[in-house]
């Protein structure tokens, strides 16, 4: 059952922090509903990019209404961040089956972020002024908390799309291209120490 926890986002129109909520354990159908809500603005932004001759973000060929059927949702837990009545970001995690790869946490369980994305209207380059910032921060902080709740000490990992690597490189170890990943994406891991730095702003 979906539960809600308070968080906040930075509203860019007035640079103020506003109340938001993390929706825990949302259903497959809710994930699809959110993507259907995002789709018209995605297409409008795509049309705008095409008219300007700019490249498309890599993940914009995704169609959740079809791919959800190919994904075993039972293996994942889904979270959304909601503000002003709409989902501003989505994240899907797995807490089983992933082990650390970097030296000081090899073999230790890590929370794996299978998917994370911000709503199209929050992306610079697609819209003149993103509506909210901090969507990624709120979701990554949630992943760290879930990791801790699972006994993983805040350790998390993910495969970043190329356009997102600078964001993750600030906070996580970059282990380079992962040939074992189907899309040959860069693999990132966050250690317990980095998790503490992320949420506290200092080493633990």
């Amino acid at each position: 059952m979906t539960s809600r926890r308070p968080t906040r986002l930075l509203r860019r129109s007035d640079e103020k922090l506003v109340q938001a909520e993390i929706l825990n354990e949302i259903s497959r159908d809710e994930v699809i509903d959110i993507h259907m809500d995002w789709q018209p603005e995605r297409l409008a932004a795509l049309k705008n990019l095409r008219s300007q001759g700019k490249p498309w973000p890599e993940n914009w060929h995704w169609d959740w209404s079809t791919k959800a059927d190919n994904l075993n949702f039972l293996a994942y837990r889904c979270f959304a961040v909601e503000c002003e009545g709409r989902a501003q970001g989505l994240m899907m995690i797995a807490t089983i089956g992933w082990r650390g790869r970097i030296d000081n946490q090899i073999g230790k369980p890590v929370l794996y972020i299978e998917y994370i994305e911000s709503a199209p209207w929050n992306l610079a380059g697609l819209v003149e002024t993103p509506r909210f910032s901090g969507v990624g921060i709120a979701l990554i902080r949630t992943a760290i908390q879930v990791s801790a709740d699972e006994g993983f000490a805040g350790r998390i990992a993910l495969h970043s799309l190329p356009q997102s690597q600078p964001f993750y490189r600030r906070y996580m170890h970059d282990l380079g291209m992962d040939a074992s990943h189907g899309e040959n994406l860069c693999y990132f891991e966050m250690t317990e120490k980095q998790a503490n730095q992320f949420v506290k702003g200092r080493p633990s």
Partner: peptide, 16 residues
């Protein structure tokens, strides 16, 4: 973070 992309996709989703 600004308005930067935060996209990540795992092996399971890539396969799907």
């Amino acid at each position: 973070e600004g308005g930067c992309m935060i996209g990540a996709v795992g092996a399971g989703l890539a396969k799907a």
